[in-house]
């Protein structure tokens, strides 16, 4: 399904139009542009009001915000508010953990969601398929606080199920909450469990939108199921995959606070692998209540994510400009 750039009317002769009309490619296109802009307008205004207007607050990151002085009256302090993020050797660790864990999440999440979506598509006509969909959505309703109870129920030293199994097979029980090295795996599982239903339903919607004619033709050519996936399904939902990955890259510096804070139970011995930018900022600032430093941390995360997306987008554009974000 190609997204051609054929625009009706563009090739027609363009007699006697004003400069503005000519700029928009003729009367027909001027009207099209007008209509389309009108359509976009409610959304544009909503974003302007609820997203762009508050962005004047970004200056807080560069100010020593004092309630009494307000946004404009507070003193400028340059990059002072950013210092606490980079001052210690922890800076490297939280950056590494955030990037690494989020990269793992993006890759495993995308693959798992895709696989589940493909599997569900295979049995879509079966009566049980809708139960799968519903079941997969359950975890999305469960808050991380509650997940932390379950994980603890599974892993705690005394009554934990996992250790009971290990000892039943003659192994030594593991102190899960003292050993940082297990946690990338535990967190990845928790994240997958929580998000796979959500991700797979987007891909399933994309797959279901594919014209069945393609599969018919492939069947006539004798293509196997795997070949159909390889040559029809995946290429056709590639734009969707790319857009979702690009969007996740934009958030790669923002960790899921609930997951990283509640599930390891804010246990200091696990920080080497579980401490991320968001939990660090929370711990450092919650007792200080410093709005400016919190704003600085958020700004830093946004800028890095922004740069990464620009790079990724540039890369995608070079390969296929239709797939790019902008």
């Amino acid at each position: 399904m190609t997204t051609g750039t054929m625009t009706p009317g563009a090739a027609k002769p363009q007699p006697h139009h004003g400069p503005l009309t000519r700029l928009f490619g003729g009367r027909r296109n001027l009207q099209t542009t007008l209509s389309l802009t009108l359509m976009a307008l409610p959304g544009i205004i909503a974003l302007l009001v609820f997203a762009y207007l508050p962005m004047v607050g970004l200056v807080i990151a560069f100010k020593n915000y004092r309630f009494a002085d307000g946004l404009w009256g507070s003193a400028w302090v340059g990059f002072d508010n950013f210092r606490f993020l980079f001052g210690t050797d922890v800076a490297w660790r939280i950056t590494r953990n955030t990037l690494l864990m989020n990269s793992i999440f993006i890759i495993t999440g995308t693959v798992a969601s895709l696989v589940i979506a493909l599997l569900m598509n295979e049995v879509y006509t079966s009566w049980v398929s809708k139960y799968y969909q519903t079941l997969l959505f359950f975890p999305y309703f469960v808050s991380w606080v509650i997940v932390s109870y379950f994980v603890f129920g599974f892993l705690n030293a005394e009554t934990g199920i996992v250790n009971q199994v290990i000892t039943a097979f003659g192994g030594d029980p593991i102190s899960w909450y003292r050993e940082a090295r297990y946690w990338p795996l535990i967190l990845t599982f928790s994240h997958l469990w929580n998000s796979v239903g959500f991700g797979s339903i987007i891909y399933l919607a994309g797959i279901l939108a594919i014209d069945p004619a393609y599969y018919e033709a492939a069947k006539i050519d004798g293509a196997s199921k795997l070949q159909q996936v390889r040559y029809i399904t995946l290429p056709l939902i590639l734009p969707l995959i790319i857009i979702l990955v690009l969007l996740s890259i934009g958030r790669i510096f923002n960790a899921d606070f609930g997951l990283f804070y509640f599930v390891p139970r804010d246990n200091p011995q696990l920080y080497p692998t579980t401490d991320v930018i968001d939990t660090f900022v929370y711990r450092s600032l919650v007792r200080l209540g410093n709005i400016s430093m919190a704003a600085a941390a958020g700004f830093y995360q946004s800028v890095v994510g922004f740069v990464l997306v620009l790079l990724a987008n540039w890369f995608v554009r070079r390969i296929n400009r239709d797939y790019a974000l902008f």
Binding site: A40, G43, I44, L47, V49, F50, A51, Y52, L53, P54, M55, V56, G57, L58, I60, Y65, L71, L247, G250, R251, I291, A294, A295, G298, S302, G305, F306, V309, L325, F326
Partner: peptide, 21 residues
């Protein structure tokens, strides 16, 4: 316009200005 939309995904002004608005 795509950029205009996308930008809001990453940047926000924080709670204080949002609350005031």
């Amino acid at each position: 316009l795509s950029f205009y939309v996308f930008f809001t995904l990453l940047f926000n002004g924080g709670m204080v200005p949002f609350y005031i608005l």
